[in-house]
């Protein structure tokens, strides 16, 4: 199959590589670039564990072809915490917000996007924002509580 050369910025660093037209961004990030925080949970956009930020917007990397991200900026949780934990991550840590942790990278990115747009979300806005990120362990409450406490005025 024909290879396509793509260049994108990943967590602030330029990244150039050859991909096939049908390769998924999730697989390329994990297997070719070595960024492992986006996880494969359902491979059909249901669970949100492969969430990344593409140009600041949360997307499912299992539903995006790698060739589509040429010229764009990608952020994963590895990039968020390069200079120490973000206040959101610290809040999640303080609240024991995660149990098995598999959904955590996607959840961190989704809430990061929410707080960029809406620094003081209501409980309902938080629930709406993370409704596409499935967590089977926590019952979501400690995740919601951490965000509420972080963002209360």
């Amino acid at each position: 199959m024909k290879k396509h050369t793509i260049t994108f910025r990943l967590n602030g660093e330029p990244c150039t590589l050859d991909v096939e037209a049908n390769e998924l961004l999730l697989d390329v990030l994990r297997d070719k670039v070595g960024v492992k925080s986006p996880k494969a949970g359902c491979e059909r956009g249901d669970c949100g564990s492969c969430t990344i930020l593409l140009e600041g917007k949360s997307v499912r990397s299992c539903l995006i072809l790698a060739v589509e991200v040429d010229g764009q900026e990608i952020t994963t949780v590895e990039g968020l915490s390069r200079n120490g934990l973000t206040p959101l991550q610290q809040a999640f840590l303080n609240h024991n917000s995660f149990q098995c942790g598999f959904c955590a990278p996607g959840m961190v990115l989704t809430v990061t996007e929410l707080l960029e747009k809406n620094p003081h979300p209501s409980k309902e806005e938080i629930q709406e924002a993370i409704a596409g990120n499935l967590c089977r362990c926590t019952g979501y409450q400690p995740i919601i509580d951490a965000v509420l406490e972080l963002t209360k005025k």
């Binding site: 994990r30 492992k36 925080s37 996880k39 494969a40 994963t76 949780v77 590895e78 915490s81 934990l85 991550q89 999640f92 840590l93 303080n94 024991n96 917000s97 995660f98 942790g101 598999f102 955590a104 990278p105 961190v108």
Partner: peptide, 17 residues
């Protein structure tokens, strides 16, 4: 705080895959 908390919120936690 959970002693595995930092691994999990930074993406450092490694699962088999």
């Amino acid at each position: 705080s959970r002693i595995d908390g930092l691994d999990k919120i930074t993406g450092a936690a490694k699962y088999v895959d």
